[in-house]
Design a protein around this nucleic acid. Structure first.
Lengths: 152, 152
DNA sequence: TTATACAGGATTTATATAGTCCTATTTTAG
DNA sequence: CTAAAATAGGACTATATAAATCCTGTATAA
């Protein structure tokens, strides 16, 4: 299905918040509050974005996350790749899951044109483009952070 | 997730078979045999493609399916739309599921650039393009038609 | 040296896809 | 006129994937 994963959508919201620039570094719990998204989920997203090199992290007291480059240099392709792995319409079939190189199996051969077209499309839109059209709301999670913390 | 649905992949295989042009019309069972895909699945795909106007159908004895236009006029976007519905990274959130018009809700506004870019990319590749790179094999279904028909 | 905050993995839960099957309708052949 | 062949459409079930949570470990600064 050609659908955005919920994580990728959340990631945009989180990155948009970090792009506002009022604070240089924000912790996972800060971002959870500001974006109104569940903290465990936000934490997971931040880790993925850090591993992908989109964010840098600082441990310890007053630690947190910050962008490694300016928002106009962060593309939708970067974000989706960070959250869901390489952008490819087909994850190579069955047993030969070590098929990473394109042009090696029939599937990749057949769909490589399409994959390239999609990647190019996603690389052409940046975080700035996404921020200009809308403020900061995301697909709502099934249970929000607030509801969850209302423990009797 | 930006992944092709299995149905969309199967559809390409089936359409490729119909594009060979040796026979004008082929039945669901014919296509199932030729493409080595389970018949119920093939039947379902053919129905969807017919409803979408990519195929025409004829009922009754000697009936079957045929292309409504030449393969170079059938785009990947046509096929994916037929199988999985409109190409949009976000199916509009929650309750307001009757939000069909873009620009009406924040989600669509935010992602409309990306949706457009992807649609354009998928419209630029035709069935002919897919056929030239690879012959006719698809992601394998978990249980193949042959195995299933080996009923003791 | 203790509290804070990130790192990474394991596990459960929910959702959406894939696959199958059943009944109705249409059409041609005999 | 009847029977067989073929599509139309929808309902149901199982399964795979994604989402969400939780737990343990490690680094850092006050």
């Amino acid at each position: 299905m050609i659908k955005l994963s919920r994580f990728a959508d959340y990631a945009v919201v989180v990155l948009a918040e970090l792009s506002r620039g009022d604070d240089l570094r924000l912790s996972a719990s800060d971002l959870s509050l500001r974006c109104k998204l569940p903290e465990p989920t936000v934490a997971k997203i931040l880790k993925s974005l850090t591993r992908a090199g989109v964010l840098s992290s600082t441990r310890g007291v007053n630690g947190g996350y910050g962008l490694t480059r300016r928002p106009e240099k962060i593309t939708v392709a970067d974000i989706i790749t960070a959250m869901d792995g390489p952008i490819s319409l087909t994850d190579c079939a069955d047993s030969r899951s070590n098929c990473v190189l394109e042009g090696q199996c029939a599937m990749h051969g057949r769909w490589s044109k399409v994959n390239l077209a999609i990647r190019t499309a996603l690389e052409s839109v940046t975080l700035i483009d996404l921020m200009q059209t809308a403020p900061r709301a995301a697909m709502q999670p099934k249970v929000t952070a607030e509801e969850k913390s209302k423990t009797i």
